[in-house]
């Protein structure tokens, strides 16, 4: 007993010491900069040069004083909803087919294709889209083969932003859903079939509930970064490109107002947290009824 106890203790210590570098690294690279930014968001100015900053809530107050900040926050959240929804519609069926129907080498090959976009820089991918979407670009040229006088000119519009972001984030959705879907025990589905369930019932009662954790992770991994995105909207959106993310970027790069930029970021973070707090009981209820 004593020996097995000390063995367990030893194993725990091995576990701690193996995970410690990762935790220390996370603390240093995520928690520390965020804490510094949180501190900045309560300052009246940057504590550099001749400025003598004081502690204030003024930066947060600015958010509520100016109408366009609220308008842009709503714009960023709706963009997040559109992109996440499209990613679910595109990504989930793709993951389902990949996990349940495609087998062996083909599955490996398709998975490789799914992660292929990660091999190139995000900025390069966005610029590639400008070539595809612009007036007389690749899509326009394809369309003009059928209707010579037609020009879609999708670039510099809201749909262009959605297309670019969906392309960036759909691999996350496919991968997270795929992991949940391929872990479903085949015997559960066979049991359903033996008991006379239709394909739709099997999907609704077995596959969907069991893959929900992956779907939820995919939704979070897509929604959160899209709400704060600034590069894709700016490059693809033209006059539609302004989002809360671009406004935050401007505070840092145009006017050196880190406190306001930080306050806007944390306000957005808080809003996203609230959205997930409100929606998570709904999702959990979904689990339970399943």
């Amino acid at each position: 007993m004593g020996a097995s106890g000390s063995m367990r203790l030893k194993r725990e210590w091995v576990g701690y010491s193996l995970t410690a570098p990762a935790f220390v690294w996370l603390c240093l690279t995520i928690v520390l900069p965020l804490a510094v930014m949180l501190y900045f968001s309560f300052l009246s100015a940057m504590p550099m040069g001749m400025a003598k900053p004081t502690l204030t809530l003024g930066q947060y107050q600015t958010f509520f004083e100016k109408d366009f900040y609220r308008f842009l926050t709503w714009r960023s959240i709706t963009l997040g909803l559109y992109v996440t929804l499209t990613c679910v519609v595109v990504g989930y069926p793709a993951a389902l087919i990949l996990a349940r129907l495609v087998k062996g080498r083909w599955r490996e090959a398709v998975l490789l294709l799914v992660v292929l976009p990660f091999w190139s820089n995000a900025l390069i991918r966005v610029f590639a889209w400008t070539m595809v979407l612009r007036t007389n670009g690749i899509i326009d040229q394809a369309v003009q083969l059928i209707a010579p006088s037609l020009s879609l000119g999708i670039l510099y519009s809201y749909p262009a932003i959605v297309i670019g972001l969906v392309h960036s984030f759909v691999p996350y959705m496919i991968l997270t859903c795929y992991i949940s879907l391929q872990a479903i025990d085949d015997s559960l589905i066979e049991a359903g079939q033996a008991l006379g369930a239709t394909n739709f019932t099997i999907f609704r009662r077995i596959i969907l509930p069991l893959s929900l954790p992956g779907l939820c992770v995919g939704i979070v991994l897509t929604f959160v970064p899209v709400v704060g995105s600034f590069m894709e909207p700016r490059i693809l959106g033209g006059p539609q490109g302004i989002m809360l993310g671009t406004v935050i970027e401007d505070q840092f790069t145009e006017v050196f107002n880190w406190p306001l930029g930080a306050a806007l970021s944390f306000t957005l973070l808080a809003l996203v947290a609230v959205i997930f707090l409100v929606t998570s009981p709904l999702l959990r209820r979904g689990f339970r009824t399943a």
Partner: peptide, 21 residues
């Protein structure tokens, strides 16, 4: 001045938000 630059940025962001409406 820093204040002028900030007010120009605010105005420009508000204008761009109007463009996006």
């Amino acid at each position: 001045s820093d204040a002028q630059r900030q007010s120009y940025l605010d105005l420009w962001q508000e204008t761009k938000a109007y463009f996006a409406q």
